[in-house]
């Protein structure tokens, strides 16, 4: 193995394949044709911005999440993995997952990882756990989640924008 390749391995703790892949080719990185609420998240430190769009199914669960983002690989990958993992969840369950995810990226610990219902989702979010080593980047990983949280607040207040 060359020195250069060995050096790259060092960098993989945070920038894992899935983060690089989702950062470059997000699956949910578009404004959907139909959505019920949307909210924006801004990171004044770097000027990054994400807008999250949420549509609900008739039972009130999250049906689809899309987002438009201008940001770093971490923030876009996190937004994309968030969309994967909250789809199908009731708003309260999505918020519980956010709380568990935030704990994970802030501390590296995941007390909720054994929790029934969240274990599989948190495993999918695990690639972002390395962010806890870089406190200045925690905001990047949680930016879309904060926007989702704000969008869910709007829905709870009955402030749907379309449909």
């Amino acid at each position: 193995m060359s020195d250069s390749a060995a050096g790259l391995d060092d960098l993989r703790d945070l920038y894992q394949e899935v983060v690089m892949d989702r950062g470059r080719h997000p699956r949910h990185g578009a404004r959907p044709a139909r959505f019920d609420v949307s909210a924006r998240g801004d990171n004044p430190m770097c000027g990054d911005r994400v807008e999250v769009f949420v549509a609900f199914d008739p039972q009130g669960a999250i049906e689809t999440v899309g987002f438009e983002a201008r940001g770093c690989a971490i923030s876009i990958a996190s937004a994309d993995l968030m969309a994967d993992t909250v789809t199908g969840r009731a708003p309260a369950d999505a918020r519980a997952l956010f709380a568990a995810f935030r704990e994970m990226v802030k501390t590296g610990h995941c007390p909720a990882c054994d929790r029934a219902g969240d274990a599989a989702a948190l495993e999918r979010l695990q690639p972002l756990a390395g962010v806890h080593e870089y406190p200045s980047r925690v905001k990047c990983a949680t930016l879309a989640w904060h926007a989702l949280d704000a969008a869910l607040d709007q829905a709870a207040e009955g402030k749907g924008v379309t449909r």
Binding site: G23, M45, C46, G47, D48, G71, C72, A73, I74, Y134
Partner: peptide, 25 residues
């Protein structure tokens, strides 16, 4: 590559640079 990703990947190599809008939007 976003400037923050560049800065973090440099930091991982022990190299401290600044990234962002530098208070000059």
């Amino acid at each position: 590559a976003h400037a923050h990703d560049v800065a973090t990947l440099l930091d991982r190599q022990g190299i401290a640079v600044r990234a962002g809008h530098h208070c000059a939007e």
